[in-house]
Write a protein that binds this DNA or RNA. Structure first.
Lengths: 210, 210
DNA sequence: GTCTATACACCGATAGAC
DNA sequence: GTCTATCGGTGTATAGAC
């Protein structure tokens, strides 16, 4: 595939235009909010008239759908990278994964809202765009449950806990790090409850290598 | 005030009309979603034309604002009632309060979204409507922290946990009770972490009264 | 004061010329 | 593929009838 001698220049150009449209949409979402995206605004930013966008996307919802899909696909790649380089200690690995999710979430409000909240009335991801989200969740489930004797129910509580903290951040502490400071404590609560062994304390670590 | 001999019939009629408008708005929200409220639809249901609504509310946002305010005011009253009739055992009281919040939340998706999520682009409650929400939160904080040696940080984790579970319910289990089954377990995780004494077990209760 | 009629600016979407 | 023109919808503003 990669070494096909004849490049499909038309397809390349089409893909590039799609990319430009999506980039413009993300830009508007970050500047003014997810719901503030209008076809006229997107079109202006890419040098078109609004109806021309319909040559590249079926509808405005299709643009949201593509954004949803690529946001989850990007997190899928990052989570996959992270998984191959996790601390051996179960609780340490959990903290790294939780922090990774939290940081990705709060880095971009619009992106998080699109991925996890229902801020666009009537938007529902297509099966195709939903697939990477399912992949992320299922890998998360298998990794977390493998950390110890973790039930599916406890995994759902873990997910809820992270989602709740992110929600708390966006609701009351936008731009601050007050909620971020709660994350480690909350994760430890959960880890204690499901019986993950405690981290070796710094004091003991000192003693271990004198 | 209450025994004023001359009733203000005009003010009564005005208040009644306002009530009708809000009821119609709630009705639409429950039927079709919070964002599906249109002035024309509301007006039709109360037998008016859309612009006539401006005689009773400054804008559509003012309608959302009144709805937000009365939803929190209603919960404020209910939480106040509940507080006067709480079990003595701290952990039992916590379970009752958490269940009460969870039940109120999932009973009405539109109401919960208006109260706690950002589904209406650009909506921000006025200071007046926000007041009961603050009252609820602050009383919750004082009651929960008084259950034991609970820090403000741990109270925020408690809030996040409840919010996360409700979010999980709406995202994946609308109409089901799968997430509801996680609530008690999650609350116990938190209660263990902050050091609330365990409930007397059923076995011990049996022994205590032979 | 309360409501209607009319209008405006904006939205997503479609039809059809080029 | 991109354009112009246009449609039905929205929230909102205002003039004027009663």
């Amino acid at each position: 595939m990669l070494e096909t001698p004849i490049r499909d220049r038309k397809a390349e150009r089409r893909a590039a235009t799609r990319r430009e449209i999506l980039d413009a949409a993300w830009e508007i979402a970050r500047e003014s909010g997810l719901a503030q995206i209008t076809l006229r605004d997107v079109a202006t930013r890419v040098g078109m008239r609004a109806p021309s966008l319909y040559s590249h996307f079926e509808s405005k919802m299709a643009i949201y759908d593509a954004m949803y899909g690529e946001a989850w696909a990007e997190y899928d790649v990052r989570a996959d990278d992270l998984q191959r380089d996790l601390p051996e200690h179960p609780r340490a690995a959990l903290h790294v994964m939780a922090g990774h999710f939290y940081d990705y979430a709060i880095a971009d409000l619009a992106r998080y809202q699109l991925m996890n909240e229902r801020v666009i009335p009537g938007f529902e991801p297509s099966a195709e765009s939903y697939a990477p989200a399912v992949r992320v969740l299922e890998r998360g489930r298998s990794v977390v449950t493998a950390l110890g004797d973790v039930s599916d129910a406890d995994f759902e509580i873990y997910i809820s806990l992270l989602g709740g903290l992110v929600g708390q951040h966006f609701a009351n502490d936008l731009g601050g790090d007050r909620v971020s400071a709660l994350l480690a404590r909350a994760v430890d609560m959960w880890a204690d409850a499901v019986g993950l062994p405690p981290l070796p304390s710094p004091a003991r670590r000192k003693k271990e290598r004198p």
